[in-house]
Amino acid sequence: MPDLLLALVVAIMLIGGGVFTFLAALGIVRLPDVYTRMHAASKAGTVGSGLMLLAAGIHSLDAAIFTRALAGFVFFVLTAPVAAHLVAKAAHAAGYRLTRLTVMDDMRELRERAAKKR
């Protein structure tokens, strides 16, 4: 019986991770510009692959391997926002535009004001 319960937990985590990863990829295809695509990749993508890694850790039934999978999960959660932040900052600094749907951009206004002052 505990076997079955464990298998169910692992299966739910696997399928959940797969669904999140798939939706993140769908977001990368459907969303209109780099910045919105980054939302999909950095949130749904991280949660998807993290869930799968944790599922692998639980399935092994070994404390050492589970802690390692947990450490990997924490590492992904820590690095994904840093990577997204760096790419977004670089893209904005290089001048890649936001989509036409954008309602406001405080950053561009500030940069233009600074450029005018100079």
Binding site: L23, L31, Y35, A40, K43, A44, T99, V103, M104
Partner: peptide, 15 residues
């Protein structure tokens, strides 16, 4: 994000 992406008509107001 998953619900937003999966909805057939995405309502976006990015900024």
């Amino acid at each position: 994000v998953a619900v937003l992406v999966a909805s057939p008509k995405m309502v976006l107001k990015p900024g």
